[in-house]
Nucleic acid binder design. Structure first.
Lengths: 206, 206
DNA sequence: ATTATCTATAGATCTATAGATAATGC
DNA sequence: ATTATCTATAGATCTATAGATAATGC
């Protein structure tokens, strides 16, 4: 908060546009006219171009913002854990629960498919870091960490698709089952994989 | 070929539009003007509306066509195999190789994310059928076939993303490693999982 | 004679900006 | 005095169709 009031107002306008854009992305309305987006953000049409060069530019910013925000939450909620296999499992289980708890964020990710996995930031980067740590600690024995990341990232996205398509399904049970399957695949003994993926979780509302 | 020449010409025009649309989807150009698509298909603007109500209608048809075509290829190339674990692995390995061999088809799938997994047709439906058969035969022991499908479908899509992002990477090696990991996860013993995922494959060019 | 296609374009829609207004800094 | 925002709109772009042309059926 070192900025002055003018810059804070500017930041608020930008944030309103980003938040509105995330809603449009979540609803798959990627072709919505800029005017509609600015109206939804309660911002004048002309202000749009003070902040973004084009609609694509805005959507890009909206996606990166969503990724950074959720990644930060995950780091906060796994900060005190020593066992890297536990960190990985807990991050996966929290991300699985995110699909229903934060449906807009979830749909932003799903609608952007895998674009985001290659960006150095965000969830993929964090998951890779956790997998590497677990390999170094001898907790995982999988052959190639990058391919392990591919399977984990693909699974968490496809799981989101399933949870939105079948609202009746128990999201925690499905998520934890997949976490257990992945841990086994990564080299954790079956009984331990089951135990780790059933541990109590911190609250996502933090 | 029971149709007359008029209907065959009509079908050709429609097919040209579908093929052009698949190229546009593959290149992420979902907002391209209809005129550009018809020009790329070498078809008059007005003919578009003889076949499709809107651009979305065309893109939907293009996606379903791509899925049906490749699914048919997979069925043909796994037709003679008795062991359902082998069928599953071979389908996965062929699909992984499809990303580089048929990059446009691959990108059509990636750009549409997971929309297609819920449609009853196409790849997801076939994979589910194979998993169920392997469970019934006692070859797989995974807890929930639907969640196994989630992991397999997510993995094959994320793998495609990786193979396009890293053109240097050996696609066959990456695909087969993931196939092996998935087989283990599904309950196949480690040594057998490795052997099944290294067997010779039929040629995708058929 | 019938059907599909093509060319040309009216009207609808959207983008990007000019110029006016409002808020803040100093 | 400066900066951000707002309203209003010119001009660009796109969609959907009308009417003309070409291909096929009978």
């Amino acid at each position: 908060m070192t900025e002055n009031r003018l810059e804070r107002r500017k930041a608020r306008t930008r944030a309103a546009l980003v938040r509105a854009a995330q809603e449009f992305i979540a609803n798959g309305r990627l072709n919505a006219p800029i005017l509609e987006i600015t109206q939804s953000a309660d911002v004048g049409m002309g202000s749009f171009y003070n902040h973004f060069e084009s609609k694509e530019d805005l959507f890009q910013a909206a996606l990166e913002n969503a990724l950074d925000t959720f990644g930060q939450v995950l780091d906060d909620l796994t900060g005190g854990i020593d066992d890297p296999a536990h960190v990985f499992a807990q991050s996966f289980r929290l991300t699985g629960r995110m699909h229903r708890r934060l449906p807009e964020l979830s749909k932003v990710l799903l609608h952007n498919g895998f674009e985001f996995t290659k960006s150095g930031r965000g969830l993929a980067h964090r998951a890779r870091r956790d997998i590497d740590a677990a390999l170094a600690a001898g907790r995982f024995t999988v052959a190639d960490p990058e391919l392990a990341l591919v399977i984990a990232a693909g699974s968490v996205l496809a799981l989101g698709q399933l949870l939105h398509a079948e609202p009746e399904r128990d999201d925690a049970a499905a998520t934890d089952q997949i976490a257990e399957d992945l841990l086994r695949m990564l080299g954790v003994p079956a009984d331990e994989a089951r135990e780790i993926s059933r541990r109590p979780l911190p609250d996502l509302d933090a």
